Amino acid sequence: MNSVPASTEPAASRLAATASWDAEADDALVCLAVRDETHDVKTFVLAPSGPRLFAYAPGQFLAFAFEIGAETIHRCYTISSAPTRPHALSITVKRVPGGPVSNWLHDTLKPGDTVRALGPMGDFSCFTHPAQKYLLLSGGSGVTPMMAMARTFHDLGGNRDVAFVHSARSPADIVFRGELETMARLDPAFRFHAVCEADAPDEAWAGPKGRLTLETLSAAVPDLPEREVFVCGPKPYMDAVRAMLREAGFDMARHHEESFDFGALPEAEQQAAAEAGRTLDAESSAEAEAAPAAVRTFRVEFAKTRRVLDCPEDSTVLDAARKAGIRLPSSCAKGLCGTCKSKVTKGTVSMTHAGGIRQREIDAGMALLCCSKPTSDLVVER
């Protein structure tokens, strides 16, 4: 007997789902709802077109391929919902000035629209580091994986000791504020603390003001040394937290951070990351020149731009292009996000990816240039 009575109501149909969503078989997700979280942050609720269940660990993300104008733009966004509610999932996106994807999502995506996604993926999760006590630290948009973890523990009960400390610009910028305060009110084992840099136009902040300091953190979480710590936010925030924990003598083996949240990075920061990659490339190149080795070199031709370069067999195509001054779309450089996905029309590559490409795309000749090394001369459709 079915656990859910037969019904023509779409919600009942979704609740009757027994099969899991498989992005390899169907990568389409339908937008069910759009919700305002703050003045510049929205949550997008997504589900498969047919009844399917999502399975993921809190803290994981999806890699999206958005069709914006005549271009396909790849971005990764952390799932902000909890896997305890598997019939739909959510991503929560801050509008970034000049950001092509965040602005398109805020201005264009509406219920009934479809987007394409791959995943879930990533190993930043409380599930991979079980503990009795957790500290979730987030700054700005870094709140999303922490919210997924907090929601999961709240749904499952069990009196899990969780302290959540979030840093925001002002009270008006505290994403999920109402829900987090409600969770803290309902669950004595869950504590929520916010730190704001300044007041909001319509609210003077009564809590800790300024940026997070070790003194503020220790006051909010006196048993800090006993906790498993998860951190996500802009790089300066994560650097500051790391320094605080070391100053406090914290066991850094119990510190875990989302080190490259490329879906949320403003483009200026993405460019900075690319420049850092070029610096590392230069260092690696210098080391290679100092170490004699017989390395084969292959010719790589970019068909659309008619650019040609030489790529050593021990270098990825993306790295070789950067050294040659050729700018290619890229973001994570880890084989996750799909930004550098390209058609190889001639030749072969050795590719070690981390989930950012489907098998059917590989079979069709696609490759992620950030993790593909040539095994012959290549022609790339770029």
Rank of each mutant, 00 (worst) to 15 (best):
Q132V: 13
A150S: 14
T128E: 06
S141P: 08
V143F: 12
P120I: 05
D123V: 15
M146S: 12
M149P: 03
M149H: 06
S141K: 00
M147V: 07
D123R: 15
C126K: 00
M149L: 04
G142V: 14
Q132C: 11
F124S: 05
G139K: 00
A148L: 08
S125G: 12
T128W: 06
F127N: 03
P130F: 07
F124T: 02
T128A: 15
S141H: 06
G139N: 09
S138G: 14
A150M: 01
G140P: 10
K133H: 13
T144K: 02
T128D: 08
P145V: 08
A131C: 01
M146D: 13
M121K: 07
S141G: 14
G139V: 03
G122W: 12
G140R: 05
L118I: 14
L137P: 10
A150W: 00
S125L: 07
H129G: 10
V143S: 09
F127D: 02
D123G: 03
S141F: 11
M149S: 11
M146V: 14
Y134I: 11
G122R: 04
F127V: 09
L135M: 09
T128P: 09
F127R: 03
T128N: 12
G139Q: 10
G140A: 08
G122S: 11
H129V: 15
L118D: 12
T128G: 04
G139D: 08
A131E: 03
P145R: 01
M121S: 12
P130T: 04
F124E: 13
M121C: 09
H129I: 06
M146G: 06
G119Q: 03
S138K: 00
Y134L: 08
F127E: 02
M149Y: 10
F124C: 12
L136P: 07
G142K: 09
P120H: 08
L135E: 09
P120K: 02
L137M: 12
S138Q: 04
D123Q: 13
G142T: 07
Q132W: 04
M121W: 01
M121R: 02
F124Q: 05
T128F: 06
F127G: 00
V143A: 09
S141A: 15
P130K: 02
A148G: 15
C126A: 11
T128V: 12
P130M: 10
G119P: 08
P145F: 03
A150L: 10
T144C: 10
L118C: 10
S125R: 00
C126R: 00
D123M: 09
A150R: 00
V143E: 05
V143I: 15
G119C: 04
C126E: 05
T144F: 06
M147K: 06
P120C: 10
S125N: 04
C126Y: 05
D123W: 01
G139A: 15
M121E: 07
D123A: 15
F124M: 07
F124G: 00
P145Q: 12
C126V: 15
P130C: 08
M121N: 05
S141D: 04
P120E: 05
Y134N: 03
M147H: 08
F124R: 00
A150P: 08
A150N: 01
H129N: 15
G139I: 14
L137F: 06
Q132S: 11
A131D: 07
